[in-house]
Computed example of a mutant assay.
Amino acid sequence: MPDSTGTVVRSGPVRYATAARFAPPRPVDTDDTRPPSGEICPQLPSRLDAVMGPPLDTRPQGEDCLHLTVTTPARDDGARPVLVWFHGGGFSSGAGLMDWYDGGALAAEGDVVVVAVNYRLGALGYLCLDGVSEGNLGLYDQLEALRWVSRHIAAYGGDPGNVTAFGQSAGALSIRLLLETREARGLLRRAILQSPPLSITARPRADSEDLGRVFADLLAEDPLTAGLPAILAAQRETARANLRRTGSTLEPPFLPVEASAAESGEASAAARGLDIMYGWNADDMTAFPGEGDDAAELTRRLYEEPLARYGAALARAGARVHTYRLDWRPAGSPFGATHCLELPLLLGTREAWRSSPMLGRESWAEVDALGAAVRAAWIAFARTGTLGPTPAPLICGC
């Protein structure tokens, strides 16, 4: 049911699609009158709880999880710019329904519509296993959510012709893949990619199938009928096996499957004419202990340099490209300008981010003051494709 909060209305959860286990999503039938379950995809605790803090809201977990929320200043014919949020979490944790991703401030301050999306995670979303799943189901969920926005957002006061996808980490990697997907053409006008670790965007199919067999051996049950506790337990052990295999605390066990060469070759044409902003946080890699001691060098190598190459390729393809770097280091935080630090500047509330370790000793008044300036920059981009004035810790054109 719609929930009026201040000057905005947050509607949801709204079921945007349905899916059987390991099957592609299907649009919700017009005669489907079931109330939404409000479930989020079954998941283990996030590996970034030490940085972000654990989520303070509790959501039911289950496979009827293809839900979204819509936050709008008014359900009228305002034809406002639309921002569609794809959360991070290493393709293994998180949910658009979480209070961290409340779009109320963005919607109220910018007179825009904010959509936050759940999608399938972990093995349920990205298992690649012969006879069970071809992989990329979570990506197909996101594509179905964009189709839902195209069909329905006008009823919530939004303009289906002015949609900006924005996402962080795994959410940003998802947007990169969507930009290279033929079916997504025409559904997006702009995109914002926040701290995508591009080196782990996708995994070759052969490697994905190898890891799928590791998961199946650890599960020792039929994946189609196994209980969710068994699925999650096998996921945990697959993550440990992947860590032993790669030595990387950054690379999650379940990733999108790499597109074929023919499909990848269409990426340049898909970017032509789009407005795309990308960036990173100056100390992104402090969130991933175990990768090395020099976080600055690791951040440069795993975020700054790959993003520069990606941006140059986008520009050659005809995209209008903008960049940023967040240098804000909250007082008292041991993490500096770490991975996920921009999230409370854009989304969520004081209560949702209460006691988040990465915010250190900063008061919510200080966080929200900087957040208002960062939100204004994102709103300007969603409206015009260019950034307006930005606060000093947000360096643009870097």
Rank of each mutant, 00 (worst) to 15 (best):
E63R: 11
L218I: 09
Y126R: 02
S356Q: 06
T58I: 14
L347M: 12
A23R: 15
W85G: 00
L173V: 00
R245P: 08
E237M: 14
Y16D: 02
E304T: 12
P25I: 01
G212K: 04
F215C: 03
A184H: 07
T323Q: 03
A313T: 09
C340A: 11
Y140F: 12
W364P: 10
T323D: 02
G348T: 06
A202P: 01
E134D: 15
A20P: 05
G247L: 05
T33V: 15
F335N: 00
S169D: 01
R34Q: 12
Q235Y: 04
T349R: 03
P197M: 05
Y101R: 03
T7C: 13
S169Y: 08
S363I: 07
R185G: 13
G90S: 13
D29H: 13
A269V: 14
R151P: 00
P24F: 09
R320Y: 04
L343D: 05
D222L: 09
G138I: 06
R26W: 15
L179Q: 06
L387Q: 05
P55F: 12
F381I: 00
Y324T: 00
R309N: 06
N242G: 11
F288W: 15
C396E: 09
L48I: 13
V112F: 14
L179T: 05
A239P: 02
H339G: 01
L359K: 04
T58F: 10
Y324N: 03
D294K: 03
D217M: 05
L139T: 02
P60I: 05
L314C: 06
Y119Q: 07
L370E: 09
V8Q: 13
W378N: 00
E366S: 15
G290T: 04
E351A: 13
W328A: 04
H322S: 14
Y119V: 05
S363V: 07
R300N: 07
S248V: 05
P334A: 05
A220L: 09
